[in-house]
Design a protein around this nucleic acid. Structure first.
Lengths: 353, 353
DNA sequence: ATCGCGACAGACACCGGTGTCAATCCGGAC
DNA sequence: GTCCGGATTGACACCGGTGTCTGTCGCGAT
């Protein structure tokens, strides 16, 4: 190899696609300095249009894309977005991931997943270490860890961008995507009251999830609007799991008189309610109406197929990602994009008699 | 600020944790060159033990951890591992992710998720772009994209490390984690034959998944060992989805005579079989036994709770990650770590009469 | 014709690590 | 005491980008 030929001029490898183009290649092939190429990449205004076009053409010809690592090193941050979650429901997690990827598509960011345990004593330092080591551009938090103020405070300290998905505005608007749990609960209450139910049961999620309270309060609102109420003794706390829903419903159904309808805080617990009803010898919806929440796959797999509240998890994920990377306009103000809706299947009917 | 004090000596910020330590800080504070610190980080053997200890102490004192971006830039690769998948089942995806994270814990790698569509005409270039842009250390592929030879060939070209999770050894051992689908199918066949079933139905996954064939062939083996056979007319192809299972089972149950037991290729389709049975007026397990595959949550949510084959997806994920980063020893040779097992619930019984 | 100024472009250092190669250190052989 | 070779260590360039600052250019004002 001729020593006169600098390594960076090894254009044969470039042409054949053996070697990815770097900013130095683009600069040399465009006849400008690398700094000018950098300006073009970063859309700096002070580049003459003809220069920009010339460079853009070379970039396009060689399919050049800047190296995220090198860029990140200079920027002192990465182009990674972390999803920090502790919700154990697989479908929630996957839908959220898909939504985030929807919102990130074409932005040059990548999604790094980071499950955590809110009960851990090292929760905050663990997340902090994750963020600082990777110099994350930003993170999205979902319930219930999104409702943790200790974590939020740490995030503000680090200066890492963040968006919290929660059912209540627990932070400033630019850091929030608010889900419509209260509205969903209201739809459930309204529907059951309309059907004529007056002895209503509620299987709540764990008190550590804000959504548990929102769904319940919405439920009560919906009932009240149609002249029904939720008696405190007909409220049983579960943990958003099948087993907890089964146990809670068993308690409710053992009471006399028992509720004629039960609203469960999510579909998993609603499935538990169905099992409890079966064990109690009750048929659904004849003896007991059941409404769930989420409209995950399980809702249509159980028998009878569950009437439930559809929560647009994937859309919420997309909004969260767009808010994080700054591409979200006024859409977030329009609740239609994250509306909850009632999906009526076969687990609801008027009460007997 | 005194110009005599170089910026790198701003130890106040370091002590207070305002600034993360860099390799230069560690070098200065240890009284060695950064290259020697680099040697310690990378476990180079040619460092005198006392030097190593001195540096290790400083590293520990300041909680130093090398910057993955800078390291990656110099190494010409990142410390990211991609999960490339096209399996739409949320629980499979989440279990696989959890397993991968299990295997990666403490290794310094992070997991980047990348769903894809095997039907896309740009599948290979899309994945290639993902790998090259991020300079991924390695990727894990799961079915069915793990069975795509075009993708595998591209991976070999790029030099990116990779591990394929599949139900058949479609690559050399160092690139494979083989799941025991055939064995699981065998367990199902064996059990149904033992119960006395002789007219057996099979709802297959899509032909594009190797596991569909493996599970079926295993099923036939298990039957044969106990004197039963799978008649070709009792095989219906589904697509690993609830709806396809429902449709396939409806066809099987409309035949005369109909099968007394059905093995479905996964739990989702088994749930569909249960719905089909109900619509046909058959009760499970009295009129029809059903076995699923996976033992995902849905198996215990449906009614009756499904007898199924437990597949250790999370463990398989852990093995895949360990193989990728090279921390997997002989464990992979021991099938116990990825054994499939029969989980007997209430959807199976001897045939009537 | 000269001056001043904003627009544009480039030189150079730096982000935080690693590779290469030369320099230094050390104990044992002569 | 001197020489030698392997073990340690350090100086310096480089990975592929960006920040800062300086220099050049073209144009209208004087």
């Amino acid at each position: 190899m001729s020593p006169r030929t600098p390594r960076s001029s090894d254009d044969a490898a470039l042409e054949s696609g053996q070697r990815r183009a770097t900013i130095n290649d683009i600069a040399r092939l465009s006849g400008v300095s690398k700094k000018t190429v950098s300006r073009v990449i970063n859309r700096s205004p002070s580049v003459r249009p003809e220069t920009r076009e010339k460079i853009d053409a070379v970039i396009a010809k060689y399919g050049y894309a800047p190296d995220p690592q090198a860029r990140g090193l200079a920027f002192r941050r990465s182009f990674l977005i972390g999803l920090i979650y502790d919700n154990p429901n697989p479908q929630y997690v996957v839908n959220m991931q898909l939504g985030l990827l929807d919102g990130m598509r074409g932005s040059g960011y990548e999604l790094v997943v980071h499950p955590c345990d809110r009960g851990s004593t090292t929760l905050v330092p663990d997340i902090r270490a994750f963020i600082e080591r990777q110099k994350l551009f930003g993170v999205v938090l979902t319930p219930s860890v999104s409702e943790d103020e200790g974590v939020a405070e740490m995030l503000r300290e680090t200066g890492c961008e963040y968006v919290r998905v929660a059912s209540l505005a627990v932070d400033t608007a630019e850091h929030m995507i608010v889900t419509m749990d209260r509205h969903g609960g209201m739809l459930a209450g309204k529907r059951l009251a309309e059907l004529g139910h007056r002895r209503l049961g509620f299987v709540s999620g764990p008190a550590t999830f804000r959504s548990s309270h929102e769904r319940r309060e919405g439920f009560e609102e919906g009932l009240k609007a149609h002249g029904a109420i939720l008696a405190p003794e007909f409220v049983a706390e579960g943990a958003y799991t099948f087993e907890s829903g089964l146990a809670a419903a068993s308690r409710l159904l053992a009471m006399t008189p028992r509720p004629t309808a039960i609203f469960a805080g999510n579909d998993e617990m609603a499935a538990g309610v169905l099992h409890a009803a079966r064990k109690a010898g009750l048929s659904v919806p004849e003896d007991l109406s059941v409404i769930g929440f989420d409209d995950f796959q399980i809702a249509s797999r159980v028998w009878p197929p569950l009437t439930t509240i559809r929560a647009p998890t994937r859309e919420v994920g997309r909004l969260a990602a767009e808010r994080l990377i700054g591409s979200l306009g006024d859409e977030a103000l329009d609740p239609r994009s994250r509306q909850t809706t009632l999906v009526e299947r076969e687990s609801t009917a008027p009460p007997k008699g």
